[in-house]
Amino acid sequence: MEVLRLQNLQKSFGSVRALKNASLTLREGEVVALLGDNGAGKSTLIKAISGVFPVDRGDIFVRGEKVSIRSTRDAMDLGIETIHQDTSLAPDLSIARNLFLGREPVSFGWLGVFAPLDLAKLRKAASELLKRVGISKKLDADALVSTLSGGERQSIAISRAMQFAAKVIILDEPTNNLGVEETHGVLRFVKEVRDAGHSVLLITHNIHHVFQVADRIVVMRRGEIVAEQTVADTDLLTVESIITGADMSALLKEARAK
């Protein structure tokens, strides 16, 4: 079932056309990898979906319904959660407080921003969540995020998105700067997220990771989507050549011939 459909999105910054007619469909329970060189328009595309700025032209459909996304809050309310490696968590706050940031459980809600946090509920929900995602053994809900490793932070951010029943989870370079083992942990987690029924849009530079977790691959170049293939139907070299625009397999043949 279709969860998110982008139709002919266009966005310009001054004279730079960052997005030209980008269309993309994301189905339920699939991991789609969004690939492309620097400046290909990947981050413009995800910023448009996550409400950082509006598009100039084009439509966004969530579960078949046309929506307008004007703010990050709009995106979240529609079930679209975006996770950037460095911008998703506040390091000086505890895990529990981070998990509920912006959606804090409070008592006396009529007090608005002055309402007291329901700390017991906060901690309980946080521990339950940590247990559900399988990282309860090691992590304390009261621990500060600054004491966690990069991989643990990614897992926390992803599980937060899962917890709020996000339909679409956008992961922006989730494995950057992570060690080998941590990277595998995060990739395994991405698979679990998919198996739980969420759809994942994975933005990454690392093609190897894509082949480990993605169902489909979408390649962008100069603001356009230039290829869309299922992982089963393609291979690393083909994808690499599409990204760079050069025919790598031909080059390779040439090199072998010499």
Partner: peptide
């Protein structure tokens, strides 16, 4: 405010990582 209120959570989060706070709708 700083330790127990929702606002305090927001204040600390903004100072700790403004982009993260904004991304959560703060």
């Amino acid at each position: 405010i700083l330790r127990y209120a929702k606002l305090g959570n927001w204040i600390s989060a903004i100072g700790s990582n403004r982009n993260a706070a904004v991304a959560r709708g703060v």
